[in-house]
Simulated scan of single mutants.
Amino acid sequence: MGGGNGAKAQQARERNAAKAGKGPSSQLKSNAAAMSIQCSVCKQAFQSTSKRPMLEQHVDSKHSKQGFATCFPNYTG
């Protein structure tokens, strides 16, 4: 009569496990490497894909007396 959905799912799990072979993977190392923008006042790191509004929010909440240029002098976004 053929395999049911359970048999197909088990075959798919086995196939995917054989493909992966390495076990669980994580993006933590690549995310840490992407933290290339740094506040010069408090040294908090931000991902390189961070936009100016997010960085301005950091300046407003943490360093309102300093300006954006003081916190992120090398920002070119």
Results as ranks from 00 to 15, higher is better:
residue 20 A to P: 00
residue 21 G to F: 02
residue 64 S to I: 01
residue 28 L to V: 15
residue 44 Q to P: 00
residue 69 A to N: 06
residue 2 G to T: 09
residue 1 M to A: 13
residue 71 C to P: 04
residue 70 T to H: 05
residue 57 Q to S: 05
residue 16 N to A: 14
residue 59 V to A: 02
residue 10 Q to T: 04
residue 38 Q to D: 01
residue 73 P to K: 03
residue 2 G to F: 06
residue 32 A to C: 09
residue 77 G to K: 12
residue 76 T to P: 00
residue 47 Q to N: 12
residue 25 S to C: 03
residue 4 G to V: 07
residue 40 S to P: 00
residue 24 P to A: 14
residue 60 D to L: 04
residue 7 A to E: 03
residue 3 G to Q: 06
residue 40 S to V: 07
residue 58 H to I: 02
residue 3 G to M: 06
residue 9 A to E: 10
residue 52 R to E: 10
residue 19 K to S: 05
residue 75 Y to R: 11
residue 2 G to W: 07
residue 19 K to Q: 03
residue 44 Q to W: 07
residue 71 C to D: 06
residue 41 V to I: 15
residue 33 A to Q: 14
residue 41 V to C: 04
residue 9 A to F: 11
residue 54 M to L: 14
residue 33 A to G: 09
residue 68 F to H: 03
residue 42 C to W: 10
residue 77 G to I: 02
residue 49 T to N: 08
residue 12 A to E: 09
residue 8 K to Y: 13
residue 59 V to Q: 04
residue 2 G to V: 03
residue 59 V to M: 03
residue 4 G to K: 12
residue 68 F to T: 07
residue 43 K to C: 08
residue 57 Q to R: 10
residue 70 T to A: 14
residue 61 S to R: 13
residue 23 G to S: 08
residue 16 N to S: 05
residue 70 T to K: 10
residue 65 K to F: 04
residue 13 R to H: 05
residue 59 V to T: 03
residue 73 P to I: 06
residue 44 Q to K: 15
residue 34 A to V: 00
residue 25 S to R: 13
residue 2 G to S: 11
residue 56 E to Q: 14
residue 68 F to D: 04
residue 38 Q to C: 10
residue 6 G to W: 00
residue 60 D to S: 06
residue 56 E to N: 08
residue 33 A to E: 15
residue 35 M to C: 05
residue 35 M to I: 00
residue 9 A to V: 13
residue 33 A to S: 10
residue 23 G to C: 12
residue 9 A to G: 03
residue 42 C to L: 11
residue 75 Y to I: 12
residue 23 G to Y: 08
residue 19 K to N: 04
residue 19 K to A: 07
residue 39 C to S: 01
residue 59 V to H: 01
residue 55 L to M: 01
residue 48 S to C: 09
residue 43 K to N: 15
residue 1 M to F: 07
residue 51 K to A: 07
residue 60 D to R: 09
residue 8 K to V: 05
residue 25 S to H: 02
residue 1 M to D: 13
residue 69 A to P: 00
residue 16 N to M: 08
residue 12 A to Q: 06
residue 31 N to R: 13
residue 50 S to M: 08
residue 39 C to H: 01
residue 15 R to C: 08
residue 16 N to C: 02
residue 10 Q to S: 12
residue 64 S to L: 02
